[in-house]
Nucleic acid binder design. Structure first.
Length: 593
RNA sequence: GCGCCCGUAGCUCAGUCCGGAUAGAGCAACGGCCUUCUAAGCCGUGGGUCGCAGGUUCAAGUCCUGCCGGGCGCGCCA
């Protein structure tokens, strides 16, 4: 609908440009906006104000000429010039009525478009280390990423959803070692669990599996294991101690574990921990309605030689240097605040080295656009990744990093704190079980991603008007209920009947609802392009409000057959749009509540 | 100290990209609406120096500069 009016406007501007000897390509493209106030019509443009200077005319005079140059259209009831020179477009009721069969015919495709056709986009999100269950912070990234991906797919992009699995590195060694130590305790060994180890119950569970299936096959003498290790720091329950170093202690434990178990047995414990947790994350996300095309292994980057290749490319470009026994990337040459180590003095690759290789690999896979969705605490990491891509000679503009701020849970006004390491956290699974997937998905994307999210558990659970997700779902259920009763009373409409009777929809509430319905395709497109799912939640609340208002003002199942038919078509179209929008959010559209 | 994000009604937030018309919504408060399709709903009323100060502009919540407040980050951790 908007594009039709936009075409008329562009034609008028082009006509005037020719008359006035202007090259239309040098003029700003006319913007057409939805009006805020119905007094200003349906659409408005400020193009006369913007072009007045170039055309050497007063804005209102230019506006008048533009209006005269507008091609005739059955969509336009009238066009007015207002204020300093705005041009306001008032659409005919028929223009709105014609949208109803369009919505009904398009069905679940209404709002979808081919805007991004032919372009491949990768969206990488969540990518939490598989060292424990996902917590509520990951949940926001999951919901946000999934909806952004679905929005982009809705406007025609070929979307590749990916989870980067950190299945290598020190944190995973700490997890494997934590599992093994718990196992030793189950074997009856007496030991002091390291302050830096993973203390969650899930570690005990994995250790119990190992013990149940393999008995004492992985047991060693704890006294021998802990001999000659650097002193650990104090845990939170212990009095402070001097000279403790939790990092050196855990690294010593990892090295001892590898030595005492040998490669094969160490590997087995490590893999057991990784696989159990990764399976849990997969199941958790699947239950949350989040699906991926690919789970990309960090380890595979080393095995495929991608990391070495990335380093070689940086080296041949002269971007690497050695200092203090380590290999550094001169990222300051590309705007980073300091240079970064890619190979440590002990020969180990840093996480950053893998990440360079990963992003190099992403671009090599030919995506037109690569979107990373990270927690806001990683924002300092953006300059170095972009620096690396620039140094590699890749087009850094293909990468967008979107930062998602923290989600803070509130229960009866109190914050719920979370930390994976201490084992005291609220998991995504707990949240899903408590408030349900629908409320969780909706609440997570209700705010702009740059905004801290106050997640009110009590509100998310409440079945009342306060709860926006129920409010929208209730509108859908209400339409369904009316349609059910129409069938029961033998009043079912014939959806294929086309535009017949729609001219009877002239009440203010009906036209307001229609106006909102026709905004949907525009809304989906901007929400997708700007990666702003909250626009969709906002819109659905407005649409639900328009419907509830209409519902309270008019009876649908009236005796007048023609009027009833028209109203049923309108609410059927409303249900379709509610359903399409909820579907994009990953929220169910219940037939009854 | 440096960098990123945020600051709009009592509360939670839209609106800022790309400057436009009297700054919007929900909650909370107050007052109405169920013999009629689900009251999980609707309608109405009150409530704002858009953090502060300058600047640009015909026009600034929106753009620029400087402050102030809050969050996060500044490892040869991931």
């Amino acid at each position: 609908m908007k594009s039709a009016i936009h075409d008329l406007l562009r034609a008028a501007v082009a006509t005037l440009a020719v008359d006035g000897q202007f090259d239309s390509s040098t003029l700003p493209a006319p913007q057409l906006d939805r009006t805020r106030d119905v007094m200003h019509g349906d659409f408005a443009t400020n193009i006369a104000l913007l072009l007045a200077k170039q055309f050497g005319m007063k804005p209102r005079d230019l506006a008048q000429q533009l209006v005269s140059a507008l091609p005739a259209s059955p969509l336009l009831a009238r066009v007015e010039i207002a204020g300093p020179g705005f041009i306001n477009f008032f659409l005919t009721e028929a223009a709105y009525h014609a949208e109803i069969p369009r919505i009904l015919q398009a069905g679940h495709n209404f709002g979808r478009s081919q805007h991004g056709a032919g372009q491949r986009v990768q969206v990488e999100f969540v990518s939490a280390n598989p060292t424990g269950p996902l917590h509520v912070g990951h949940g926001r990234g999951a919901a946000y990423g999934a909806v952004v991906a679905d929005l982009l797919a809705a406007i025609g992009f070929d979307v590749h959803r990916e989870y980067y699995v950190n299945d290598a590195g020190r944190q995973m060694d700490i997890l494997g070692t934590s599992v093994w130590l718990r196992y030793l305790e189950l074997c009856g060994e007496n030991l002091r669990f390291p302050s830096n180890g993973y203390k969650g119950d899930y570690v005990w569970d994995i250790a119990a599996t190992l013990h149940r299936e393999h008995g004492d096959a992985y047991r060693v003498d704890a006294v021998e294991l802990f001999a000659n290790l650097p002193v650990d720091a104090a845990t939170v329950d212990e009095p402070p101690r001097e000279n403790g170093d939790k990092e050196a202690h855990i690294d010593g434990l990892i090295a001892a574990a590898k030595r005492l178990l040998g490669d094969n047995r160490y590997r087995y414990v490590f893999e057991l921990g990784l696989n159990v947790i990764l399976d849990d994350i997969r199941a958790d996300l699947a239950a949350f309605g989040v699906e991926y095309q690919e789970w990309f292994s960090e380890r595979s980057l080393t095995e495929s030689g991608a990391v070495n290749r990335a380093i070689a490319r940086l080296r041949s470009g002269g971007h690497l240097y050695e200092q203090d026994g380590a290999l550094w990337f001169r990222s300051t040459a590309f705007g980073d605040e300091k240079d970064r180590v890619v190979v440590r003095d002990n020969g180990q690759m840093t996480y950053f080295a893998s990440d360079i290789a990963y992003h190099m690999d992403k671009l090599e896979r030919g995506f037109d656009r690569v979107i990373d969705i990270w927690g806001a605490d990683h924002h300092g990491y953006i300059p170095r990744v972009k620096a690396a891509l620039t140094a590699l000679g890749d087009d850094v503009n293909r990468l967008d990093v979107l930062l998602v701020q923290f989600a803070i849970l509130y229960r009866s006004g109190e914050k719920a704190q979370m930390s994976t390491r201490s084992g005291e956290f609220v998991t995504l699974r707990q949240l899903r079980n408590e408030v349900g997937c629908d409320a969780a998905r909706f609440f997570y994307v209700m705010r702009r991603c740059e905004q801290h999210l106050d997640f009110d558990l009590d509100l998310a659970k409440s079945q009342s008007a306060d709860n926006p997700v129920y409010y929208v779902q209730y509108a859908h259920a209400r339409v369904s209920s009316v349609l059910r009763q129409a069938v029961e009373k033998g009043l079912a409409l014939e959806p294929s009947a086309g535009v017949t009777n729609l001219e009877l929809l002239t009440a203010e509430h009906e036209l307001a609802l229609l106006r909102t319905l026709t905004r949907y395709p525009e809304l989906v497109e901007t929400a997708a392009l700007r990666a702003e799912p909250h626009q969709l939640t906002q819109y659905l609340r407005e649409l639900a409000n328009d419907f509830h208002t209409y519902y309270n003002a008019q009876q649908f199942l009236v005796a007048d057959v023609a009027l009833r038919d028209a109203r049923l078509k309108l609410i059927l179209a409303t249900r379709q749009v509610l359903r399409n929008g909820l579907n994009l959010l990953g929220v169910s559209a219940p037939e009854s509540m």
